[in-house]
Design a protein around this nucleic acid. Structure first.
Lengths: 242, 242
DNA sequence: GATCATTATGGTCAAAATGACCATAAAGGA
DNA sequence: TCCTTTATGGTCATTTTGACCATAATGATC
């Protein structure tokens, strides 16, 4: 057991799955561990939960220490409590999904970006695979602790929820001005497959525009190659947690 | 702060939502608290998590201490970690759904049944309401700690999952011999509304029988008044957690 | 400027799923 | 025997879905 944790005590941590969509792929940010155990391995950013803070507060602090982003979306994923998940001692971890708009991440200064690794998440025959920008390829067991399993749980949860919650919108750079094409890219990245644009539009418009949760703005998006896209705005409503 | 907890330390508990279907209603088991805080109030059964056990193990132990049931179904619900949720100190709780077949509960000896209260869960205009057998009516704020909120979270989760997971089957007394009428009663109790029997059959048969996850047995159920019901069997497949 | 590639958008059409019914079957109770 | 109750099967209009095809509006290329 690692000497820094008192034997016979139980510790609580939070771990973050920082997710974003970049170049049409679902991406995940990992930190390289400096200290033992698993020194040098890639791991989910994590932190011990202080006695005076909730788990969600701990995640927000950790995120703000790591990235200067304001409008990240948080959702509790699952609490992992296997007795032997941490060789230092008894550590229970509550994992959170943290969704960041892709543009926000690109806009960060280089010295901030060097603090973490960015990996594209893919699934090869039901197996998790993480592709780093420099050609690095990781599988679940390459990661520290049980973080491979946590990531698998998180990706499955995200895929399961994207069709019947508005979690997909949280990847958009601007909820007050987005095109259906941008949203489709998010869905395709999360689900890992191409969708039919026409059918995708129809289902989103039915579920969001017809119900007043999304409205057409008078602006257009002329950033890309083809025909300009109509921009929509999500209507936020205060919801209760969780 | 309660003297039994050391200030400056963080504790982890598990709480159980023990759910069952009785007389066509979703029922919940609560314990009456003996000690401060909230002495005399109804509360979710709970327990501190030991340093040598996982949260799920702690739930199983707690359940076995309370009820002699073997085949309960467990699913982690959510981890509640607000700083002030427990006046004794800093206590984080991971709540679990525990689903028990209704008949198993009726079959318990009287002295066991006296250890807890059984309440029918209803929703009056989005508000949680718990109806005890003796005419007692509780609302969320009558319960100890944040247990009212935990129950609301649990009921919503159960309702959200029953249509696209097999969690509804876990309320059945015998997964190797159940009728579609019994299953319909479970769905109606959880959703709190009457369903069309014919359409219900059609959707269950399509999703489970056509995919081989449920098969027709050669037995019949002649327990009740009307025409005997065909009995089905669920095909269990080993799944990974979570 | 003409043409092409690209992205956005709209429409068609058959198949599948859904919701609201009605009808019949097979039991027990009166 | 008739009635009530539960189970089961079927119809039918409506809605949703999936697979397409067609057109619109832009930038890129020559």
């Amino acid at each position: 057991m690692h000497e820094s944790l008192v034997r016979g005590r139980l510790y609580v941590t939070v771990d973050m799955l920082i997710l974003t969509v970049k170049d049409g792929k679902l991406n995940l940010l990992l930190s390289r561990r400096k200290d033992a155990p698993y020194a040098g391995r890639w791991a989910l950013p994590g932190r011990f939960v202080g006695v005076d803070e909730s788990a969600e507060t701990a995640v927000r602090k950790l995120l703000n220490e790591m990235l200067p982003v304001r409008d990240a979306f948080l959702e509790q994923l699952y609490t992992f409590s296997d007795v032997n998940r941490d060789p230092r001692g008894r550590v229970i971890s509550t994992a959170y999904l943290v969704i960041i708009p892709g543009q926000k991440l690109d806009a960060l200064p280089e010295d901030t970006k060097e603090l973490f690794g960015q990996f594209a998440v893919t699934e090869e025959s039901e197996r998790l695979r993480l592709n780093g920008g420099d050609g690095t390829v990781l599988i679940g067991s390459d990661l520290a602790f049980d973080h491979g399993r946590i990531i698998e749980t998180g990706v499955l949860r995200l895929q399961g929820k994207i069709d019947y919650t508005d979690v997909g919108f949280r990847f958009l750079n601007n909820l007050k001005a987005f095109s259906l094409g941008e949203l489709e890219t998010v869905f395709e990245a999360v689900l890992g497959k191409k969708l039919d644009s026409s059918n995708f539009r129809r289902s989103i418009l039915k579920r969001y525009e017809e119900t007043g949760r999304m409205i057409l703005t008078d602006r257009e998006d002329k950033q890309k190659r083809g025909r300009p896209a109509a921009l929509y705005q999500l209507i936020e409503k205060e919801g209760k947690k969780p």
